[in-house]
Write a protein that binds this DNA or RNA. Structure first.
Length: 433
RNA sequence: GGAGAGGUGGCUGAGUGGUCUAAAGCGACGGUUUGCUAAACCGUUGUACGAUUAACAUCGUACCGGGGGUUCGAAUCCCCCCCUCUCCGCCA
């Protein structure tokens, strides 16, 4: 959520930056300002009225104490209809406030000034490339062929269980998935200094609103209903990412400056409705309704957040470097960024069987956009309450990492070679039929 | 799921319609004293919104789990919801 004071004081900048997002939200800025103006006028009026009422009520109390009942009655009459007027104005304030905040909460974050202006993914500059595309002296298979021939993935039976868009890992497939998860958690907790947390996989709507997934993208998420009770709809949702519960851990808290930075790392499954994406390129495990992910979350002081974004991105890249997978890093342009983000790097890993790069990580600095929605603050050394900056990054998404991994390490005989770094987890150097 | 008890400031805890719109204690911070520490004493000690102001600041309003109601006036009375604890039932 944007700071209403920022909008009041820098209308032109806000309007211009919103416009650069290619989402035409800037037209709501004037409406917000007009509602905000109304609210302040009403507030001034009702508060003055309340001040008078409080004063007279106190006088009545004093008179009652002195047993001057007639004088007290007279004063009561005087203020009797003041209550109605106060109630009326209170109602108006609440209505205007609701409208104002309804718009505010639907406005995306402002892009950071270092973010290039652009319309779509085609305008995202490539920041750096690591490694190179592996060469094969045979026709490389894709992960679907490999997964089925090595009995690591069973797409037909997954569909039988849950419909399209779900994965059934079997035998070495399940072990590889689990090994990758554990490798990632060990790396980030041991080498990169993150604290591991294991959050609920189901959260209330306030958590989705806190990170900016609600109210704009409601149809993307799975709701959970307890038993056969449609009336319970809207109370709980399956998490689309660990960011949702983990970023909300300290919501409505005032942290101390000494606690920052907080760096959390969490493995969870992620559930996504992917409404509107069905039917296009959905075969395999590149776009699915459920996938595993190890997520990184940071809560930091504002002055540190851009340095922390760089190190978080480096932490995610380290995963691919250690696994020996070729990747590139893109800086998302203004038109391609997520709702809550002020600056985002995407990391795309090369998948030989696809002949394409796959997004396995997205590292974003949301600045104070989320902390304001969550009312998360920290007390500075000078005793002032400020909103911390919140960052999130995949470290990394698993299903696509799995794809790139098996496609990169496939051998001419159809087996998969396991690089030394994963061997202690998988307890083998090769997966074969 | 059933029954009961609760939810008050950083913490403990008093407060069942008005007289400072939260007593007292603890903790924390500042000061006095002190060779240093401790003790003692004195003082300070929340959050948000708004108005005035160049600013320091001053004033106002709201907040006692959340929301609604009664009243001139609600932490206090009434209604709904949420959460915690104890016991019972069910259960991985």
């Amino acid at each position: 959520m944007l700071d209403i004071k920022l909008i009041r004081e820098n209308v032109d900048i806000v309007r211009k930056r919103l416009a650069s997002r290619n989402a035409s939200e800037e037209k709501f800025v004037d409406e917000v300002l007009s509602l905000d103006d109304q609210r302040r006028k009403l507030l001034a009026e009702v508060e003055q009225l309340k001040a008078t009422r409080n004063r007279v009520s106190k006088e009545i109390g004093a008179l009652m104490g002195q047993k001057k009942l007639e004088e007290a009655e007279a004063k009561k009459k005087e203020t009797r209809d003041m209550g109605d007027r106060v109630a009326e104005l209170d109602k108006q304030v609440a209505e205007v406030e609701l409208k104002r905040d309804g718009i505010l909460i639907s406005l995306p974050n402002l892009p950071h000034e270092s973010v290039p202006i652009g319309k779509s993914f085609e305008d995202n500059p490539e920041i750096r490339v690591w490694g190179e595309k592996p060469k094969f002296d045979f026709q490389p298979k894709n992960h679907i062929e490999l997964g089925e021939s090595l009995k690591m993935l069973d797409f037909a039976r997954a569909t039988k269980l849950s419909g399209s868009g779900f994965i059934l890992y079997t035998h070495w497939g399940a072990k590889l998935e689990r090994s990758l998860i554990q490798f990632l958690l060990d790396l980030h907790t041991t080498d990169h200094g993150y604290i591991e947390v294991a959050p609920p996989h189901v959260v209330g709507p306030h958590c989705l609103e806190g990170v900016g997934q609600f109210p704009k993208f409601k149809d993307q998420y799975y709701g959970v209903v307890e038993g056969d009770r449609p009336d319970a709809m809207g109370k709980l949702y399956l998490i689309p990412t660990a960011e949702t519960p983990v970023a909300n851990i300290h919501r409505e808290e005032i942290l101390s400056a000494q606690q920052l930075p907080i760096r959390y790392c969490a493995y969870t499954p992620c559930f996504r409705g992917e409404a509107g994406a069905a039917g296009v390129g959905t075969r395999g495990m590149i776009r699915v309704h459920q996938f595993d992910k190890v997520e990184l979350i940071k809560i930091v002081k504002p002055e540190d957040s851009y340095a922390e974004l760089e190190s978080m991105t480096a932490n995610a890249e380290k995963v691919l470097q250690l696994l020996g997978l070729h990747y590139r890093v893109l800086l998302l342009c203004t038109g391609d960024m997520g709702f809550a983000s002020a600056k985002t790097y995407d990391i795309e890993v090369w998948a030989p069987g696809q002949g394409d790069y796959l997004e396995v990580s997205s590292c974003s600095n949301c600045e104070d956009f989320q902390s304001r929605r969550m009312n998360m603050r920290f007390k500075t050394e000078t005793g002032e309450n400020k909103m911390p900056h919140i960052l999130n990054g995949s470290g990394t998404a698993l299903a696509r990492l799995f794809v790139a991994f098996v496609e990169t390490y496939q051998q001419p005989d159809g087996s998969i070679k396991i690089p030394p770094i994963l061997q202690p987890y998988l307890k083998t150097d090769r997966i074969s039929a």
